[in-house]
């Protein structure tokens, strides 16, 4: 049990928490928050990978790019959720029943 294993386990637990949020919550914005929670763990993994392989500068550039993507995902997710709110007057996932086959 060294530092790497502990950080890996904590990261994996974080991803489990994020995926749990996607599955269980009824709130649209909360789902976007779930994605962001899982993304935190991924950021940690990338930096850890850089430290293990000795290429910390490379992984830092990865992390910076991932952050830009993360922000845009938050913008699009929030924008879509707000659009749905304007249609239904609530942020409930259970309203989404238009598409069925």
């Amino acid at each position: 049990m060294n530092l790497v294993i502990v950080l890996l386990i904590i990261g994996l637990l974080m991803i489990v928490a994020g995926c749990w949020c996607l599955m269980r919550t009824f709130h649209l914005l909360k789902m976007t928050i779930g994605i962001e929670v899982a993304m935190k763990a991924v950021t940690l993994f990338l930096v850890l990978a850089g430290r293990i392989s000795g290429k910390i500068a490379l992984s830092e550039t990865f992390v910076i790019t991932v952050m830009v993507a993360e922000v845009i995902v938050a913008v699009v997710g929030t924008g879509t959720a707000v659009g749905l709110f304007r249609k239904y007057g609530s942020m409930d996932v259970r309203n989404l029943k238009q598409l069925k086959g």
Partner: peptide, 12 residues
């Protein structure tokens, strides 16, 4: 998220 995690693992 899956793909990025995989990328980090490969980079290790």
């Amino acid at each position: 998220i899956f793909i990025l995690t995989a990328i980090a693992f490969l980079m290790m």
